[in-house]
Structures are given as structure tokens and as C-alpha cells.
Amino acid sequence: MTFQCQTPAVPTVQQDDAVVRITRWDFEPGAATGWHRHGWPYFVIMLTDGTLRIHNGTEVTDVPLAAGQSYRRQAGVEHDVMNGSPHPIAFVEIEVKQPEDLV
């Protein structure tokens, strides 16, 4: 249910308060986050071009993304994310703990 790799992705928490947690993720080629579940809705903004290799527990999907491209997901997502690119990649993840406090 998880990728087999020797290199973990490196999270750097930039902000963590009652409303949001903002984390920069840096991945060497083949690095992975490890299996995890998102407790809050979240946004991802790519800092580099790259391919996210997503393992959802039953299948693996390669998702090519460009620097500056973003997407969002609902709470409850379970997956492992690996750098499927031949070069380092990075993105910023913004988890929204209190969506009503953002307005």
C-alpha cells in the first residue's frame, strides 16, 4: 500500500496555527511522503515542473504538473506521493483547518 523507497520527502512547516498548516515538500528523485491520510481539505501549488506518482492503495497514477500549477482535494484523501521525475521537485501544501475563518 506504500512505495518502496529509501529516500523520504522532506517537509518544512512554514506556518501551523488554528486556521492553516503550510508545508513545503522537497523530493529528490524517487523520494516519497509515506502513506498518510489528510484530515483537512488542502491545496497544492507546484514550485517546479514535475511528475507526482500517486499510490491510492490500489493503483499508481503519474500526474505531470507545471511550476505554478495548483490543485485542491477534500479531507479524507489517503495516499503515498512519490517524485516520478528524474530531477528534484518541490511543492507547497496548504491544509485548511478552519475554512470558515478564511473569509
Rank of each mutant, 00 (worst) to 15 (best):
E59M: 14
R73S: 05
W35Y: 06
P64W: 03
W35V: 12
T12Y: 01
D62Y: 07
P86E: 04
Y71T: 12
G57S: 10
E93L: 07
P86K: 03
W25N: 10
M1W: 08
E100G: 05
Q98V: 01
D49E: 14
G30M: 10
H79D: 07
V81Q: 01
T51F: 00
G34C: 14
R21A: 13
L52A: 12
Q15K: 13
V96D: 11
V63T: 11
D26L: 00
A31I: 03
A90G: 03
A67D: 10
F43D: 11
W40V: 12
T61M: 10
M1T: 09
R72G: 15
Q69L: 02
M46D: 03
A67K: 08
T48L: 09
V92H: 00
Q14E: 15
T7E: 15
T51G: 04
V81L: 12
T12P: 09
T23A: 09
Y71R: 13
M82Q: 07
G30L: 06
M1S: 15
H79R: 12
I94P: 09
D17T: 06
C5Y: 02
A66Y: 02
M1L: 10
M82N: 00
Q74I: 05
T23N: 06
G30I: 03
Q69I: 09
Q14D: 01
L65Q: 08
Q6V: 08
A9E: 03
R73E: 03
T48R: 04
I54H: 09
D16E: 15
G76L: 07
A18T: 14
D49Q: 12
P29V: 00
W40T: 14
